[in-house]
Design a protein around this nucleic acid. Sequence first.
RNA 1: GCCCCCAUCGUCUAGUGGACUAGGACGCAGCCCUUUCAAGGCUACGACCGGGGUUCGAAUCCCCGUGGGGGCACCA
Length: 591
Amino acid sequence: MSAYRAKSAGRGGDEYRLWGSDADFLPGDGQYQHEPKYCARFGSASAFHQLWRQRPHSPDAWHRVGRKCRHAAQTAGILRIRLPDNQTSLNDREISFLDIRPARTRLAPSPTGRFHLANARNALYSYLVARQTGGQFILRVEDTDQRRFVPGAEEVIVLSLEWLGLTPNESPFHGGQHGPYRQTERREIYQHYAKILIEKDSAYPCFCTPERLDQMRKEQEARKVDRVRYDGLCRRLDPENAARRVASGEKYVIRFKMPYEGTTTAHDHIRGNIVTENRYLDDYILMRSDGLPTYHLSAMVDDHEMKITHVLRSAEWLPTFPLHVQIIRAFGWDEPIWIHPSILLKPSGKGKMSKRDTAAAMKDGHSIFVDDLDGLGYTPEGVLNWIALMGWGVAEDDVMTLDEMIERFSIDNLTPSPAAINFQKLDHFNGTHIRLLTTEELARRVKPFLTNAGFDVDDDTLLKVTPLIRERLVTLDDSIPFAGFFFKGTVEPNPEDLIAKGLDARQSAEIARKAYDILASLPDMSHQTAEPPMREFVETSGLSANQVFGILRVAVTGQKVSPPLFESMEVIGKENVLERLQKARTLLESL
RNA sequence: GCCCCCAUCGUCUAGUGGACUAGGACGCAGCCCUUUCAAGGCUACGACCGGGGUUCGAAUCCCCGUGGGGGCACCA
């Protein structure tokens, strides 16, 4: 995998360089000096690769491409940035555009519940960043809260990722060089780092009991303080004294020593700098009395140990974002690029999805849980496309496969505002991607739904049926009403439905008889041979196509709505068609 | 209550000071195609939260409101 990097030659510098590990298409010594006014942004290494091959290295050529592609740039994954005349250097944001070293990203769910849309979206974006830079996507299980641990949740997470096609490079199940990938298996690591923090005077042991904390909180609330926070009793303890108490086996937690004054500036890639006054922050607990870390410590330690370059997590973490930045700075580590995609709102746009909304969605054939979506007949392609666009601004051509997303995705196009879930859009994308599937693939995916519905499915018939139902499916289980009758020996039409509009039972029976005669006289039941004589019959009879074909449809398929009639009859076969027609006629005559 | 985040069609969004008569997609409505249902094609409807600035010029920059969301645990 290639790695490219571009960087400003320094503040106020006027030169931009690209270099990469894959020097064979970089000119000369592997460096290329840009026209100072322009720099390139690469959505992906391969997009860059392509452009590089196409264009000669003259500044004019770059210029031309840049002007022309302003709009098309998004789709090509390449965009030229023209620096304003008074700007001579790139800012951090712009530099990060250019930085496409292999990224290491991670999904860090806690095995406490089900794998839902927000998890899936974070996984997708993380996966995309990793893949387009030739990096790794990691799954880390954050199971430090053992009280909330749900057995089997880990498996659901991995299975869901697998189903979506977002297979991690490293995980508790896939292994890797930076494991273990389960936090409960990393206790000693956190203890080691907590100790370092105490040594650096950025953390301290706290012996306050839950009861005292509770009382303290109540007092503060009674005083109507702006911010209820730890009063610092143990922070003022003499370190040696504290160490003695720890050694004596007294119960304690470890707290972060938050500065009482000043501000913390944290940089989110989507929102820019977020400045928080430290007095609104707290001496958060890093290590619990059970010896396990809280998220604040474990996530920072693991992201560092696992060499994570881009931290993608829900915007719910924004309030504690400054804390996390402080912890990392206290250690003296490099910060990753922080990306907080907006939260997902319920379809009404009012609030996060709740249990009640989830139940309502289920009743409607929808769900926010990935493992439900599978059973509901949704395809990974459709689901992926759907979630991708909640928070990723794509100007045009928003139907994409995973590979196309890898080409086009950029963390720079993520949107900061909360997005409401829209299940209609899921249906749209699902139907669209179903239509994009090959016949063989669609047949393969539809089969289990038919089989589960009790149909005895043979592959030859299914392969013939699939093209007929393809553009009618929103979900895969829609194949049951549309294709089920192909796999039944007989059908039981509703007698009422057999009577054509404007006609009575007698007349309808007569039409069935004539149709029978015509079809029986044919050499075969292919739609090419069957349709013309039937059309001719419609013409000469003075009846409408609607009436005649309607009777035929109900008789042959047993239902008023079906795939195209003659193609369906071809699949069902002459003998069977005639049999069903005969039965319909008898039924009509008995009315 | 306090802190933080956000603000363009009903929804997802494009938009980075003039190319904006604000573009696309979903949905909705109509038309075309059509044996049903779809799919497809075309057309319509539809938005810059409000008020102040800055500027020759603001959807875009700043401030103040308002509205929405999130967070205030030995949960993540």
